[in-house]
Design a protein around this nucleic acid. Structure first.
Length: 644
DNA sequence: GTTGGGAGAATTTTT
DNA sequence: TTCTCCCAAC
């Protein structure tokens, strides 16, 4: 028997051991939300629930893995059988199994951002709309995604977003139609399609719905405040039969509104589930009282939320600092100095993090850290699996096992000398709209159609494709990647990039990663859904990273904590970001984001406020301290000016 | 048709 | 500073 009452405080205990029925846990930052979910899982398993009748939906793969591991530690290995992952992951699993009901192959490809963008470009071109003033692919992609995640028509999304634009909305609707058709044709889904189709599958196919409804006796959702309409509906359908749905979240921390997250989902949960029991967790175990005072004051600026106050449990320490600095360079030097000071006090580099609103805010700091010789890891905007050279390898693997994957085919062939877009198109057509690398005649046909220079370069790749099938390398992904690298990619990288060695290291890493997956197709199905946050976390966990300072956006820091946290560019226009304010004029979400940043800190918090920002062409312009600092009552921060 | 150079623009947050 | 697009040469 697990001694729940010894491990949990009364509120946590109430949530973890609650009887069946809907349950809403309002868990403020640092109040043991994860702990509560972990022990809820442990409790259910101990009560005799079959682990695979539990579904745990989380926001990152990292969170899912962490909770399952901890549940295993508490309730035994069996807890590993719980279904867990992100909404995208779980929908992916549903669709791999039952997607044929919607007309998809079981080996459909998942478009990542680049794939979507390329595909949209293609559609715009085909429709001959590629005029200068026509919206760019990113704008279009954003629009389509906006519509999908809110379950509205593209027309409505256009009206909502681009009413000022001088474009015929019907043209955009036509691009959208073409994009949808193209994905169909290629047997592909983009990120949003996973959610849309996952929900459609449950809605429109009763046997599938009944199967999953019967199967999942309990549905648990982490970070519920960041669910969008599709996700909330998916949860409600899955839990409809047994009625056991547990939503855990904090409306103060809803920071994905721009992606369709709607904190009304959490606000109205009690209305949708009238019998629901509500538990509030307010005792904060993470931060010192001085930091919590700042956090409470920050969020007080947002009305209309569930009232929660963070209550401190830790003893007093120093007040958080506000450093007022001249510009980004001085800020970078100040952070370096502070980092060194904390090191002298005994903090390790990995105990410290620098958070910012947007990736480009970190440029000066990165340069200064390099100069100072302080190692750092940055969770960058471009995912590890989105970099060009990594995608080259993935394209090769996709050609190995996905005969209909035209995009991968195009990418792989495009690496050959003298082969570009047009040649690829012609080849694909001549091969009959597919390329089955398992079939020797197809391989021969392809080689035969290449021009001599390309054919020479293809030889090595063709042999590897044969080897993949003949030697059954699908379960030895690491080996096939190494061989592809040796036989072709290494030379290609040398030819194409300045920093070929660095990129080569990434390929070694990739080979290792694939080696941990049961098979190449399994890896490919998951890889588009892995994020760089997951990746950084994995590396740290395996101890592959040396002690290093952590850099990342506030969004990426969600759910994490560090003894020492720096927030940089706490200035109007940067944080809050002028872009967001320009669109809606509403700063509530930015304030919640700032709240998330502040509540990541356990012992020390340092807010950096530069007063000047370099503009283009060498000019400067002044920026005021962020409203989030100005709103605070006086006396909560230790203010210092300049480098000290 | 392909490729590379050069000029120009731009720079939110993510599955 | 880094990506992106367009044009001219092979």
């Amino acid at each position: 028997m697990i001694p729940f009452d010894k491990l949990l405080n009364p509120e946590q205990l109430e949530a973890a051991t609650a009887p069946d029925g809907p349950l809403l846990v309002l868990a403020a930052a640092g109040t043991g939300k994860t702990q509560t979910l972990v022990y809820r899982v442990a409790f259910l398993v101990e009560q005799g629930q079959a682990p695979d009748s539990l579904l745990l939906l989380t926001f990152t793969n990292r969170a899912a893995r962490e909770m399952i591991e901890r549940a295993q530690a508490a309730a035994g290995e069996a807890a590993g059988g719980v279904w867990s992952g992100t909404f995208h992951h779980i929908c992916n699993r549903f669709l791999r199994r039952f997607g044929d009901r919607l007309g998809f192959r079981h080996d459909f490809t998942i478009f990542d951002r680049d794939d979507s963008r390329a595909c949209i470009d293609e559609c715009v071109k085909t429709l001959k709309l590629n005029r200068k003033e026509f919206p760019k692919r990113d704008v279009l992609a954003g629009l389509f995604s906006h519509a999908a995640n809110r379950a509205v028509d593209v027309e409505d999304a256009i009206e909502h977003n681009l009413s000022a634009l001088q474009v015929d909305p019907m043209d955009i609707v036509r691009v959208h139609g073409a994009y949808e058709a193209r994905k169909r044709e290629l047997g592909a889904m983009d990120f949003d399609d996973l959610l849309v189709n996952g929900l459609r599958l449950l809605r429109e196919h009763e046997p599938v719905r009944q199967y999953y409804q019967a199967r999942f006796r309990h549905v648990l959702v982490d970070e519920y405040q960041d669910t969008n309409l599709l996700q909330a509906q998916t949860v409600d359908i899955l839990a409809a039969q047994h009625g056991n749905v547990m939503a855990v979240g904090d409306d103060f921390q809803c920071i994905y509104g721009w992606r369709g997250a709607d904190f009304r989902n959490i606000m109205e949960f009690p209305k949708r589930h009238p019998a629901c029991r509500i538990v509030k967790l307010e005792r904060n175990y993470r931060s010192v009282p001085e930091i919590l005072e700042v956090a409470n004051a920050v969020i007080a600026g947002n009305p209309e939320q569930f009232q929660k106050t963070l209550r401190a449990t830790r003893p007093a320490r120093d007040k958080p600092r506000a450093l007022f600095l001249r510009d980004g360079d001085e800020q970078a030097r100040a952070v370096v100095r502070q980092v060194r000071r904390h090191q002298e006090e005994g903090f390790r580099l990995r105990d410290m993090a620098v958070l910012y609103r947007a990736h480009f805010h970190s440029i000066e700091l990165q340069m200064e850290l390099s100069r100072a010789g302080i190692p750092y890891v940055i969770t960058s905007g471009v995912g590890v699996f989105e970099q060009a050279h990594v995608k080259d390898v993935l394209a090769f693997l996709r050609v190995c096992c996905q005969p209909c994957d035209r995009l991968a085919f195009a990418r792989l062939l495009g690496m050959l000398p003298g082969v570009g877009e047009k040649s690829v198109e012609a080849l694909w057509r001549e091969l009959g709209g597919q390329f089955d690398s398992a079939a020797p005649p197809q391989r021969a046909a392809l080689a035969g159609r290449l021009r001599p220079p390309a054919r020479a370069a293809w030889k090595a790749i063709g042999e590897l494709l044969a080897a993949y099938h003949d030697e059954r390398l699908e379960t030895r992904g690491g080996e096939i990647v190494d061989r592809f690298f040796e036989a072709f990619l290494h030379a290609h990288l040398e030819r194409t990039y300045e920093n070929a060695e660095k990129r080569a290291d990434d390929i070694v890493e990739l080979a290792l990663q694939i080696g941990r997956s049961p098979s190449v197709p399994a890896f490919l199905a998951e890889v588009a859904l892995l994020t760089n946050v997951d990746h950084t976390f994995d590396r740290q966990k395996r101890g592959e990273d040396a002690d290093a300072l952590q850099l990342g956006t506030v969004h990426q820091a969600k759910g994490l904590e560090w003894p020492v946290v720096f927030v940089i560019w706490v200035a109007e226009g940067m944080f809050p970001s002028s872009r967001t304010l320009g669109e809606t004029g509403d700063d509530a979400e930015e304030r919640r984001l700032f709240y998330v940043a502040v509540t990541r800190a356990k012992d020390e918090l340092c807010l950096c406020v530069p007063q000047m920002r370099g503009a283009r062409e060498g000019g400067v312009f002044y920026c005021k301290p962020s409203r989030f600092i100005k709103e605070l009552p006086r006396g909560l921060l230790r203010e210092t000016y300049g480098l000290r």
